[in-house]
């Protein structure tokens, strides 16, 4: 069970008007691991995420999630299968409070569709305890009632993680979850990611290599849309091609 592949992509390719952003990428993520996807700016990491979550349709390739071919599925349905992503640029619902941000995710998981426009908002109050727990878990207790747009960047990121967790996803794709966070936040969110990975699989794009080193079980390095190397941190960081791609990065 533990070594089973939860998500695999084969021959994944995405062309933007002749420019190949993702080029024949083959990737396998094992259930229950933290897998990091790293690479220089413009390597195609975010595009990979967009392909895996079906925000973009691949030009070629196949994606299998939990034994199911999701290559042609809609992004909302992919999310409903438990494959949920966060965004590189913080994605919160700005006019809603932090608590409402989390609640809207809980609402989807617990109630499914909410087409009941005739119902009172009161039916959502049963979600508040769980929303509150999640808000507390990411350290936003004091900010629960503040509109998300007024939060600092780091707190928006934390809120995003809480919102993503509210879906209780089987697998998370996190696009640079630590970007723009203070050292203190990075430590708290690292610990949180470690904690939530107990029951889940995580695929993570992250530039902070010390975070990658401490958290990830396996690393895939991407450059110019292609997979350059794959392995655990010790192997990858010694790979001369990776060092070359990362010239000047101290941890490599």
């Amino acid at each position: 069970m533990a070594n089973e592949i939860i998500l695999s992509a084969s021959g994944l390719t995405k062309e933007f008007k002749g420019f190949v952003a993702v080029d024949d990428v083959t990737l396998s993520v094992r259930r229950g691991t933290i897998h990091a996807l790293i690479g220089p700016n413009g390597a195609g990491k975010t595009t990979c995420f967009n392909l895996l979550t079906k925000v973009l349709s691949p030009t070629a390739g196949r994606i299998i999630y939990n034994g199911r071919d999701i290559t042609k599925m809609s992004p909302a349905n992919v999310a409903r299968l438990g494959l949920v992503r966060s965004f590189q640029i913080s994605a919160v619902f700005g006019h809603m409070t932090a608590l409402e941000n989390v609640r809207i995710a809980l609402q989807r998981r617990i109630r499914g569709d909410s087409f009941d426009f005739w119902c009172s908002e009161r039916v959502l109050s049963s979600l508040h305890d769980e929303a509150w727990e999640l808000i507390t878990a990411v350290g936003l207790t004091e900010f629960a009632m503040i509109p998300a747009r007024e939060l600092s960047y780091g707190r928006k990121r934390a809120l995003e993680i809480a919102t993503t967790l509210a879906l209780d996803p089987e697998m998370l794709l996190l696009d640079e979850p630590m970007a723009g966070m203070t050292q203190e936040d990075v430590e708290r969110v690292s610990a949180l990611i470690k904690e939530i990975s107990q029951k889940r699989t995580i695929l993570m794009v992250e530039h902070n290599l010390s975070v990658v080193a401490s958290l990830s079980d396996r690393i895939t390095v991407l450059t110019r849309g292609k997979v350059l190397a794959e392995g655990d941190y010790a192997t990858v960081s010694k790979d001369p091609r990776v060092i070359e791609a990362y010239i000047g990065v101290p941890h490599a």
Binding site: A76, A91, F93, I104, S114, V123
Partner: peptide, 26 residues
């Protein structure tokens, strides 16, 4: 309508459609 569970989803779509999709809303 605006303050129903449905209205909440609408507001989420207004604020950030891509995020609402990524939460599984059609």
């Amino acid at each position: 309508i605006i303050h129903s569970p449905f209205g909440q989803v609408l507001k989420a779509i207004r604020d950030n459609e891509a995020r609402a999709v990524s939460l599984g809303y059609r």
